[in-house]
């Protein structure tokens, strides 16, 4: 049994480190987005792009640091279903916005 403990400890420390890194990065990204909007020193378009990028970076950070820990033998399936769902989300959101924008436009003209 004794040879299992160092392995378990290493795994444990890795998990701990991942949680702390994910937490610190999330705080930094959140506060950065907050101050960008608070200060309003960029142009409107640049602000939109900056906060969107910061949110997407935080999504990636949290998926890797928090979700990545729990993946076992189904890792490939987890990733595949996640990517497929993101595809559906993009179709639903961009499709809705596109259709409704055109509908508004055509009703006004």
């Amino acid at each position: 049994m004794s040879n299992h403990h160092p392995v378990a400890d290493t795994q444990h420390n890795k998990t701990f480190t991942a949680y702390v890194i994910g937490f610190v990065l999330s705080i930094i990204l959140t506060v950065a987005a907050f101050f960008l909007v608070q200060k309003q020193q960029l142009t409107t378009v640049n602000l939109y792009i900056s906060v969107a990028v910061l949110a997407l970076v935080q999504l990636v950070v949290q998926v890797i640091c928090f979700f990545g820990l729990h993946k076992g033998s189904e890792r490939g399936w987890n990733l595949l279903t996640f990517v497929f769902t993101i595809l559906i989300v993009l179709v639903v959101v961009s499709g809705s916005l596109w259709i409704m924008y055109n509908l508004n436009y055509n009703m006004d003209h």
Partner: peptide, 13 residues
């Protein structure tokens, strides 16, 4: 995080 960004932050830009 996306509510924070899309609803609130983008709401006050």
């Amino acid at each position: 995080i996306f509510i924070f960004t899309i609803v609130y932050l983008m709401g006050v830009i």
